[in-house]
Amino acid sequence: MLKKALGRCLLLVSVILPNLMVQAEEVNVYSYRQPFLVKPLFDVFTKQSGIKVNVVFAKKGMAERLMREGEYSPADVLLTTDISRLVELHDKKLLQAVSSQVLEQAVPQQFQATDDTWFGLTTRVRNIYSAKRLGNISINYEDLADAKYKGRICTRSGKHPYNVALVASMIAEHGEAKTLEWLNGVKANLARKPQGSDRGQVQAIHQNLCDLSLGNSYYFGKMLKDDKQKVWADAVNINFPNQGNRGAHVNISGVALAKYAPNKANAIALMEFLVSEKAQKMYAETNMEYPVRAGVAVSKLVASWGKFKADTLSLEQIAKHRKAAIKLIDQAKFDL
């Protein structure tokens, strides 16, 4: 009887133990992106790998949270929405390098850190939207400072990360002195004090408050698919700036490995999955952005906006001018 009981116990352990091991396979993601935008990707990853993905939506204060948690942080993978936030995490030493040929080969050098601490996942253009009544126009970022646009430009805060990155790219191209002159010129041409979101600027064009605005490319797609906001998008053309010279400024959504990742192997597996052809297509279509992986087609809607020439300067180089960009924006009193 004792042998039979012992046998049943061993059988029970042999059934339960593997299940416990499977349940222990997980990865924790801190995301600037809302969970519903990335959940379809994670569901596919879990189905393929058996690794459960736990998501914490940390749009504000991700760096502060990671610093507060320190070595006890449960965070494995960090998803961000632009280069400024990646650089903030990097500068505060909250990331660790990842040695992965999969990531290095899938992500163009322009969109990854030289020390392997972060990698781009998708790209978006900092477009110039124009009132449709102006017809098709060819425009550069530099043109926004032209006096002919006085009282005709709308934008969100100059210190928003999307605009900070654009100003940093201007510094990389023209130097600080000329960029400050440009900022002063753009400020003089504003129709109103910087405010609201990128979509709010397109709404302002629809309301005839201004003729031109800055905005990320994916917002155009989001507005076109929104019953209320479609009328705003229908009132503008989406323009890719600087097509006759260096090309349009692009930014990224990115991914990084947290410094104290408790599930490092699973985290790297997820990061590598996110640059796979299947994930790249899903991610870009869901967010109406451009895949970083070469050869992956954009969505039909995004393709309908046409092809464009992008600035080839690495985002890491642009990010080096981030602090100088903020200083110049303050110096120009851009938001006042």
Rank of each mutant, 00 (worst) to 15 (best):
K3N: 09
G7C: 09
C9V: 07
V13Q: 07
S14V: 10
L20H: 09
M21A: 12
A24H: 04
A24L: 05
E25H: 10
E26K: 14
Y30L: 05
Y30M: 07
Y32K: 05
Y32T: 06
V38P: 13
F42K: 12
V44P: 14
F45H: 14
T46V: 03
Q48F: 02
V55Y: 05
V56C: 00
E64M: 06
M67V: 12
G70E: 07
E71P: 12
Y72G: 06
L79A: 09
T81F: 08
D82H: 12
L86A: 11
K93R: 11
S99Q: 15
V102S: 14
L103P: 12
V107A: 10
Q110P: 13
F111E: 07
T114F: 14
D115P: 02
D116E: 11
D116Q: 11
Y129R: 04
S130F: 01
S130A: 15
N136G: 06
I137C: 07
Y141C: 12
Y141D: 12
T155N: 04
R156E: 02
S157Q: 10
N163K: 00
A168C: 05
A172S: 12
E173A: 05
E173M: 02
G175H: 01
K178W: 01
T179Y: 00
L180M: 11
N184K: 15
G185A: 06
V186D: 10
A188N: 13
N189K: 07
R192Y: 10
Q201Y: 05
Q201D: 08
V202F: 03
Q203K: 14
I205L: 07
N208R: 14
C210G: 02
L212K: 07
F220P: 08
G221N: 04
G221D: 00
G221V: 03
D227H: 08
D227I: 01
K228R: 07
K228C: 01
K230S: 04
V231S: 15
W232Y: 15
A233G: 09
D234H: 12
V236I: 14
N237R: 13
N239G: 02
F240Y: 15
G244S: 09
G254T: 03
V255N: 09
A261M: 06
A267V: 00
A267D: 00
I268H: 00
A269Q: 12
F273R: 07
V275E: 00
E277I: 00
E277K: 09
E277P: 02
K278H: 10
A279I: 02
Y290L: 08
Y290K: 05
S299N: 10
S299I: 01
S304V: 01
G306T: 01
K307P: 08
S314G: 04
L315E: 12
Q317N: 06
Q317H: 11
A319R: 09
K320A: 03
K323N: 14
A324I: 00
L328D: 13
K333P: 12
F334R: 01
L336C: 04
L336Q: 15
